[in-house]
Design a binder for these strands. Structure first.
Lengths: 194, 194
DNA sequence: GAGGTTATGGTAACAGTGTCAACATTGCAG
DNA sequence: CTGCAATGTTGACACTGTTACCATAACCTC
């Protein structure tokens, strides 16, 4: 008995084309509607149409899958910020634009943003280091401080802390998550009137 | 057969004196060493010496217990900040002191601090509202802005965002959690040179 | 092409979790 | 003293992450 394989359905007999990628995609989609604590490894496997333990051929444990999702999220955040900076013209206005993009990304992807940080992640892979947005931030900070090494680093951290804190407080319902407040808080004229 | 009840052990026959308080205390102690996701309802019940389902006589579900722990944490944080402000003399220096206390509290109680915010909590109970530290913050901000309503609110939120973001980034290992950096970032001279 | 090796997937099971229904014990009010 | 409400226990269910072991498919060498 020969199975007809020329139908629409890929039929995926026993071997899934690229299970790892499928799991990551399913995880990202799930994070759009599911809180980070309610994300189940078995549920993800079910959605991909595979047994629960098949996951372990591609990830040593759940934490590793989470880590992969976080990596994907970091890249998405970076692209989002880069696009915002480019749209702002990559000039002085881009400084605030990347900050606003940071907060907007958090509000649009709450679970993913929390996953990027949060405890389900190995230490070491800092966003601060080799990131597009980070280098842009450093560039703007250097201009503002006149290339003072110490002051530049401090300004970068202060700016990062403001946007990160604002994003977190809005995500946690401590502050209203409206656009006007974002613009009000991330306003170069009042925030860092250097 | 009469059981001897005059020994040292309270023996707690069937009825626990105040199980609710005992559970909260055990929860707070557990949060000192356990991550928020690894906090188990059954484990807490075990430590208190009670069956797992006894918890449900005092809390409708796990979330409610978490909420109670979060409330306790909010009060602890408030007292900690108040003490820091008092030690600083309740003058202009107290502004920065409460901010530094905020971050130090987070670093000293990572899991509890995350619980205060985080998803295991009903919305609505904002720290921002009727808090000791909040009123102190508002007081200082009013002085700095000359009682401008709009500017005061913005300054408060900016200040809160900075300390919250700094605390979170340090907790998540994105920034080194050292005292010098805290002082450097929360420096009124460079942060809000109003 | 045949046959063995390796990557990949499945089954069964285990310990642990939050939660519910039904039952047991206690303290208090009448 | 008696009955009721508060409090605690037992047993069970569905679910989770994870492991040990088995099954299938792809690939590589001869």
């Amino acid at each position: 008995m020969v199975t007809v394989s020329t139908l629409q359905q890929p039929v995926r007999s026993y071997h899934h084309g690229d299970l790892r990628a499928a799991l990551v995609a399913a995880g990202l989609k799930a994070l759009e509607t599911t809180a980070i604590a309610d994300l189940s490894l078995r549920q993800l496997a079910r959605e991909v149409g595979v047994s629960a333990t098949a996951v372990y051929r591609h990830f040593p444990d759940k934490q590793a899958l989470m880590q992969a999702l976080a990596c994907e999220g970091i890249e998405q955040l970076g692209r989002y910020q880069q696009a915002a900076a480019a749209a702002a013209g990559n000039n002085a206005a881009a400084f605030g634009a990347t900050g606003r993009a940071y907060v907007r990304f958090a509000l649009a992807n709450p679970a993913l943003f929390r996953l990027i940080f949060g405890e389900c992640r190995d230490v070491g892979q800092s966003i601060f280091g080799d990131n597009l947005a980070a280098s842009l931030l450093r560039d703007k900070a250097m201009k503002a401080t006149g290339s003072d090494e110490e002051a530049t680093r401090r300004l970068m951290i202060q700016a990062w802390a403001v946007v990160h804190g604002l994003a977190m407080l809005m995500l946690d319902g401590q502050l209203p998550a409206d656009e006007a407040l974002i613009d009000q808080v991330i306003d170069p004229k009042t925030l860092f009137p250097v």
